[in-house]
Amino acid sequence: MPGNNPAMLQNSDVFDCDAVIYDLEDAVSVTEKDAARTLVAQFLSAMKKQPPMEIVVRINGLDTEYWEKDLEAVVSDKIDSIMLPKAQVRYLKQLDEALSEIERKKGMKKHVAVLPIIELAASVMEIDDIVKAPRVNGVLLGAEDLSSDLEVARTKKGNEILYPRMKLAYACAAYKIDSIDTPFTDTNDNEGLADDCAFAANLGFTSKAAIHPNQVPVINSVFVPTAKNIEWALRVEEATRINAEKGLGVFSLDGKMVDKPVMERARKILVKARKYNLIQEDKQ
């Protein structure tokens, strides 16, 4: 959501998404940075109840003159995460220190998380350390700036970003944090978006960023577990419980072996399904 657009801000809690990103960076012109910062701060301050989705604010990069003022204005118990553009390990360390100081000064109860954006070749080379940095609970791939840094054309097929996609998905999976795929920029091509989501999901991404509200249902349809998967996972869960009582760690279900990795896959499906209340809906 562009941070300087009151009409968009006031309707931002109606979408069926996991998080809303209020943007102070690229969606705000240089001459309006102060106005956007103050508007987002006042909007958050006026928020009476916590919306169902996570609240994220994308600040300006740590190589700009704006980021400290951004943090001072928006960091409060109302937000969940700060999104850091052009993330690098040295900036994440600096951001952690600044956030700690603000949290202490404001007497905050919450420990604000950080979502770094991988949008520089240098960031791609540091992913292994970025995922381990303090406060990081997810990473977003920013393919537009990354392609620009590489001086390559951005394509719908996305061959030019295959390496960072795979590297990011693996690093996030290793540290059990969210991997958020780059937005699909053609807002009129939902078929292309669905294909792009499926490709990212198959690489191991846990979610995808949207740049238009119309994209949210398409993204959700790919990244939430299907009814068939949920049914299978519930059966694995039940069979695991019954077989554990018999002392069996490995067993057969529908003629297929169920061992620890299969149980873990089923568990992850059910965690996601329960997060979105999909199991309760199925039972009704």
């Binding site: 009151p6 006031q10 102060d34 106005a35 103050t38 508007l39 701060a41 006042q42 909007f43 301050s45 006026a46």
Partner: peptide
């Protein structure tokens, strides 16, 4: 047709 927080934000800016 601005909401209160928008008027406050614009005035502060």
């Amino acid at each position: 047709g601005a909401l209160d927080y928008t008027i406050k934000a614009r005035l502060l800016t």
